[in-house]
Design a protein around this nucleic acid. Structure first.
Lengths: 228, 228
DNA sequence: CGGGATATTGACTCTTATCAATGCCCGTGG
DNA sequence: CCACGGGCATTGATAAGAGTCAATATCCCG
């Protein structure tokens, strides 16, 4: 029942100063368009569950995971954000997930109040924001189907196809996150994820070059295993 | 593995004419604010997966479920919409879920193009839309945690607490949907849902008055079983 | 009051979690 | 440059939770 009581990720510890503001923040009026660039080391928290909501973020480089924890340590990752992706939307005034850097990650933060200030923004801009939020919604709904109704093999296959679609070279996928994160994204354990990788290998659908480099050998077989 | 191949819900069949437009639609310009009221019988589809996206909807009375099917019939429900709720957001130009009436349901449809037409709408209105979409996102993310990481008992307990929060009388919940829908919302089978209701009864957390009427006897015990 | 849909309960199976041992890879320091 | 060490990943044995199949039971609705 308790799937990993010890989440305490043995991160290489980082000093608070490792989280750095890459440029000086602009004054309130001029910051509206530009945002603040920040750099976070591997494992650093960008914002925490329960913290006040004040910014939305865009990934410049690196990878971010959106995380929710149960009191006993069980963890769910709702998504991974890659360069170009915008994250951190909140309906209320506190964050309901936390966001963490999976690897060293550069991010631009935009003040929400500045973004939505009436008069400084066009309706087209709002429409754009709405579109980003709706895409995130669509992704989360799709993930709900994966987690709620697919078998372990199907989930892992679906994950690889998703990563492949977001990758520059479709048949070669670099996984920046450990098995543990993949497991918590898919609602599985890391052991099961590992076993499913092995099974996909046996099926001839993929080949592994180390744990983090995946070649998609047979896309059809992978799609077959994923049941889309 | 196939969790319910025969989704073919034995609905009391309905004629297409059962889906009725309650008032004449207004002309394009005057319809912007008012929308079209429609009535759907139990089980009727409001829109289908893959259909063109053109409207968003508000529930007036009844209940709507948002549904996604796998080719083999496995089904996931991403949410239930109650009177007052707005649903049907889509980032692209097709629906990625379908929406169905759980019971006879009255709905108002708003043309998306009219809603977002530049010049007809204020930024405050957009902000409101964005807020609704973000709330839906938050709900779906929360549900992902429930489905990805909670045990069967915890899922059912969480479901009852959710319904209770949305109910007029917090200690008495009327469930308009069958066990099958609850199961597909929680990523379980209807048998397991039924067993968990029995277990919660044994625990003294709830009492059942028929299958659809639930008394929350001991809210703390229910919250304890749900692990929030 | 009857009948079909819906729900409950039981027996058994199977997938995935858990616990545990080993292996691998990479960065660091000798 | 090689050896060491630690996190990460793989693999194995077993257990547990939920699914499946099947037999009633109950509840609406006409």
């Amino acid at each position: 029942m308790f799937q990993h009581a010890g989440i305490a990720q043995s991160l290489r510890p980082f000093a608070k100063s490792d989280i750095r503001l890459d440029k000086r923040p602009e004054t309130a009026t001029s910051a509206v368009l530009s945002g603040m660039p920040m750099t976070y080391p591997r494992g650093a928290e960008i914002y925490g569950e329960g913290e006040a909501f004040g910014h939305i973020y865009q990934v410049v480089s690196g990878v971010v995971r959106s995380v929710k924890l149960l009191p006993d340590g069980r963890r769910q990752i709702s998504g991974f954000y890659l360069p170009g992706d915008i994250f951190g939307f909140e309906a209320g005034d506190v964050h309901h997930f936390s966001a963490e850097a999976v690897v060293q990650t550069k991010i631009i933060a935009f003040r929400w109040q500045s973004l939505i200030a009436t008069g400084t923004r066009s309706i087209g801009f709002f429409h754009e924001l709405l579109n980003v939020a709706m895409k995130d919604l669509r992704h989360t709904q799709a993930q709900l189907l994966v987690v709620g109704r697919k078998s372990a093999l199907e989930r892992v296959a679906a994950f690889l196809l998703e990563m492949s679609e977001r990758s520059a070279s479709p048949n070669f996928v670099e996984l920046p996150m450990p098995r543990h994160d993949i497991a918590d994204y898919l609602g599985l354990t890391l052991e099961t994820v590992s076993r499913m990788f092995a099974e996909l290998k046996e099926l001839g659908a993929i080949a592994l070059d180390g744990a983090r480099r995946v070649h998609l050998l047979d896309r059809d077989r992978l799609a077959g295993a994923s049941t889309n």
